[in-house]
């Protein structure tokens, strides 16, 4: 977390954790799905469920799904904008277990893709994503993050890191997790810079690759 996250973000009120943080969780869903959201099924946990309404959590999450940033003046009217854009959404309470009280689960469907994200808003607009498509992860969107979903194969990590090294991009953190040997795997790489469009296109063409997503830095610092 940097200084600009402590005196910041610049945002539309009323709550940094329930509004700005919720918007950023929605943005994670927006970038993870990689296409316009058609259906959003949103589960709100603990404090998000209890006091979300008074804090604008609902409109902020939808705003994030539309790609709006926390300081976007359109935030409060995201419901109307979502309807105009053909996004259907519904909210319900959910019990997510031992997570931060400000947490949500987003189940998203686009025209061709689906995505599921569980994340928490830990205060001051800071977020922590704890689960993506059933994989346990830990990312904060404090750096650009490359997410690769692929079939567990020998050498994928080596080739990806070699590609990034070729682009002169330093890796901050790297997390690889899989459902079973030879099964679905998820690679989450936090980077110090954005990879080129060519590199992303190249990754997408790999035979074992199911999808490639780039989550831009969402924090200010």
């Amino acid at each position: 977390m940097s200084l600009l996250d402590m005196v910041g973000p610049v945002m539309i009120g009323p709550s940094s954790s329930h509004t700005a943080g919720a918007c950023r969780l929605g943005l994670v869903g927006h970038f993870l799905l990689g296409e316009p959201v058609r259906e959003a099924n949103i589960g709100l946990h603990a404090s998000f469920a209890k006091t979300g309404k008074g804090h604008g959590t609902h409109f902020a999450l939808i705003a994030g799904l539309l790609g709006y940033l926390p300081h976007d003046a359109r935030l409060p009217r995201s419901f109307a904008d979502a309807q105009a854009a053909g996004m259907h959404f519904e909210f319900h309470d959910v019990e997510l277990g031992q997570v931060h009280p400000n947490s949500a689960r987003l189940r998203l469907r686009g025209d061709s893709a689906t995505a599921e994200v569980i994340g928490s808003s830990t205060g001051g607009g800071v977020i922590e994503v704890t689960e993506i498509d059933g994989f346990a992860v830990r990312l904060s969107a404090a750096s650009p993050t490359l997410l690769l979903r692929y079939e567990d194969t020998v050498g994928v990590i080596a080739r990806v890191t070699a590609l990034l090294a070729g682009e002169q991009i330093n890796i901050a953190t790297l997390l690889c997790t899989r459902k079973k040997r030879g099964g679905d795997a998820l690679l989450v790489i936090e980077l110090d810079a954005l990879p080129s469009a060519e590199a992303l296109a190249w990754l997408r063409n790999w035979r074992e690759m199911q999808w490639v997503r780039l989550l831009p830095k969402l924090m200010d610092g």
Binding site: M6, V7, G8, P9, V10, M11, I12, G13, P14, S15, S16, S17, T19, A20, G56, H71, A73, L75, P76, G123, G124, G125
Partner: peptide, 21 residues
Amino acid sequence: EENARMGRIVAAPTAGSAGTV
């Protein structure tokens, strides 16, 4: 009060406490 009216503010460190600094 701007925050409660959904105006633009700077969280410092949060929006609920944005007026103190």
